[in-house]
């Protein structure tokens, strides 16, 4: 099912000859996708927040103020204060770092492992392929959130283990996608020719096959970051999150949910930033796919 990529003749030329042109070409197409472009800006903004966030916050996000508990949004506190009287806006700004680093590292880990498995599986075929795909089947057979619950339950709570758990269910999908792409590329002319020249296997995989799969990887990476944020938030909700007392958005959301009836802003703002962030990653992923992945290219 995954190997149905329709290869167009244009991609047949040997890559990396004019990488600059390729990028410009990509940018020219991508620029036209307005939602994706805006999302890209938004993601840049988030990355910036991750870096300078702690320096631009209006209040110390960890400083409690027991005289100003659960205040509604005002000019002082644009997003209101939480159950300890802490400034919600400041917490959200600072929380960008932990939230994004957890989900990005989780997907990165999943991508690396999945890509290697996919390359190996697709290139070698035979029993290697079968074995790897069987493992992926088993991983797929577990509903992903349940897999994550199990992993966190075994490894215990904590940032590192949540990353591992979320990474886990990115592995099979990347393995399959990369395998599919590898199978396509393997039969192509330049690989055949490299092989006939006697290039080593690692070299072929690394120099010729892997670069061809990069666009697909980028697309799915982007989209999966969004999903990973949601998965991490769900784990928080079930009490298995990274660090419930941190300013991680998922943790903020799940910790404040008891206040939904009385102090709606506690639940609303973390929910909103999660929504916008995941939305941005999804739209960006969509845009990238339209441009990079010839299958759905109009």
């Amino acid at each position: 099912m995954m190997s149905k990529l329709q290869i167009e003749t244009s991609t047949m030329e040997i890559p990396k000859v004019k990488s600059e042109n390729r990028f410009l070409n990509f940018w020219r197409q991508f620029r036209k996708k307005k939602p994706a472009l805006f999302s890209l800006y938004f993601v840049f903004l988030l990355l910036l927040t991750m870096v300078i966030g702690p320096h631009i916050v209006p209040y110390d996000p960890a400083e409690p103020n027991y005289n100003r508990l659960l205040e509604f949004p005002t000019l002082d506190h644009l997003f209101g204060t939480d159950e300890y009287g802490r400034d919600i806006l400041s917490r959200i700004i600072v929380g960008a770092r932990i939230t994004l680093s957890v989900s990005v590292s989780a997907v990165l880990l999943g991508t690396v492992v999945g890509t290697v498995l996919g390359l190996v599986s697709g290139f070698f075929g035979k029993w290697v392929d079968k074995a790897i795909m069987r493992i992926c089947d088993v991983l797929f057979a577990f509903p992903d959130l349940i897999l994550a619950i199990g992993i966190v339950a075994i490894l215990g709570p904590g940032v590192r283990n949540v990353i591992i758990a979320v990474a886990f269910f990115n592995i099979p999908s990347f393995a399959r996608i990369v395998r599919g792409a590898t199978l396509e590329v393997k039969e192509m002319l330049f690989v055949e020719s490299a092989r006939s020249v006697g290039a080593s296997t690692t070299r072929i995989v690394w120099k010729h096959i892997f670069p061809e799969t990069i666009p697909v990887i980028i697309v799915y990476f982007t989209m999966n970051v969004g999903t990973a944020i949601l998965s991490a938030a769900s784990l928080s909700f079930l009490g298995l999150g990274a660090d419930p007392s941190s300013s991680d958005w998922g943790a903020m959301l799940s910790m404040s949910r008891d206040y939904i009836g009385s102090s709606f802003h506690l639940v609303f703002f973390p929910g909103l930033v999660i929504f916008l962030t995941v939305l941005a990653f999804n739209l960006l992923g969509d845009g990238l796919r339209d441009v990079l992945d010839p299958k759905t290219n109009d």
Binding site: Y84, L240, M255
Partner: peptide, 16 residues
């Protein structure tokens, strides 16, 4: 402490 939101709130308070 356990993972209930009240416990976590309490632990956070003790930390502060």
């Amino acid at each position: 402490g356990n993972t209930s939101s009240e416990t976590v709130t309490g632990m956070e308070f003790i930390k502060q």
